[in-house]
Nucleic acid binder design. Structure first.
Lengths: 218, 218
DNA sequence: GTCAGATGGATTGTTGACAATATTGAATTA
DNA sequence: TAATTCAATATTGTCAACAATCCATCTGAC
């Protein structure tokens, strides 16, 4: 692992976890001091992060974490809907039997986690992330998995940390997950796509509802 | 425009146009000499390109242009199908009337270009690119446009240059384009999505057919 | 008092040299 | 003769200094 990779990981998690506030204009030397880096690798990491849309960089004017809106979060869910629908369909066609049973096992442990840590949003979010992660890789579509895992999920997690809006509908989400896995196990790609799209659509509408209720501030 | 940006553009077009062969392991100093750059900006550009999946970089082992297969090209078309379907739907909902008439105008000029330069694959491909470009931006979905314009289209164009497989069905494609624009003009997002998906699906099957006929070598 | 312009400071962009590591080739041994 | 190990070399990763550019503040005029 090279220094630039370390810098990339550190900065990415820092942005996702909200340790670097959105819109915050932050200098390179300050970042170097904070993460014990030198400017060379840092700049490489900054370039990569800019290319992924997590921060913007104006020439001679410094870098700033991308400032975001709920409207854009909803747009992300629209993208997720179609892309993860495709991922579910291809996963149903291509996952090995071992992968499918492993997926079912993770759902079981998610269920236990939900029962144990009632309302602990963090674990729910992690379980959700695990589920979608497995299906993305199971699609055997390299670019699709790359775009989902490398771009979209990081942005969604960033919003999650920032708004602390991990749905709050764990049981319902788990049930939807089970039905999707069922469709995959039956190798019914069309149904898996339909269910996945509906699942993400429900999550998006849940956020919209919270906005209408005034529970999400901006 | 900074040196790193120049390097990024130069390298990207060089990769897309095939001037840098796939799988070719190329040294940094050679790249510097070729594009009149120093290693600092070059490395930044390399990081960005790696993050976009156009080249791979193993530590202490050099960079090499991503080597690709037709199977992966077909996977790209699967992704395009769902993403551009979404783009068409949102474009139908959100494009301004001015944008729509501009889109119709571009189709007219494409038609003239096809008539004039019969079989000149290059212009057809450029026209096709223009069409999809306008719809992606017209979706008003920042991230969606970014993913399509910044990632997928460059990869597709790379394959196009490499295989010189610009469909060869210009009139049919133009007709499909017209029907899509018609749906957008009528603000029928659902129809626009359906037609766009079918359009890209047809393009993918056209490539598959050529493979079966042995016209595409690898 | 306010706006315009210029200057100083700070920050970014760039460069070249230095250190660390993988590859390649040759030499040795089984 | 083939495989393996070792060393030389070339290439990449890293660093610190230099140059270019922007931003803010200060000064001056209207």
């Amino acid at each position: 692992m090279t220094r630039a990779d370390e810098a990339f990981d550190c900065l990415q998690t820092a942005i996702v976890k909200g340790e670097l506030a959105p819109g915050e204009k932050i200098g390179e030397v300050e970042l170097c001091a904070r993460f014990n880096l030198t400017r060379g690798p840092l700049r490489e990491a900054l370039g990569r992060l800019e290319s992924r849309g997590l921060l913007v960089r104006r020439p001679h004017a410094g870098v700033s974490v991308v400032s975001v809106s709920v409207a854009e979060l909803l747009e992300l869910y629209r993208i997720r809907e179609v892309m993860e629908g495709l991922a579910a369909r291809q996963a149903a066609e291509r996952m090995t039997d071992e992968e499918i049973s492993a997926l079912q096992s993770t759902l079981d442990s998610h269920e236990r986690l939900i029962e144990q840590a009632q309302g602990q949003a963090y674990y729910q979010a992690e379980g959700d992330y695990d589920f979608h992660h497995r299906i993305a890789t199971g699609s055997r579509n390299t670019k699709l998995a790359q775009m989902l895992l490398g771009d979209l999920y990081y942005m969604v997690r960033m919003y999650r940390y920032r708004l602390s809006t991990s749905a709050g509908r764990p049981h319902m989400a788990l049930g939807e997950h089970r039905r999707i896995v069922e469709a995959i196990a039956q190798r019914d790609g069309e149904l898996a796509e339909f269910l996945m799209k509906r699942h993400i659509n429900a999550a998006r509408r849940n956020i919209e509802k919270k906005i209408e209720e005034g529970l999400l501030s901006f």
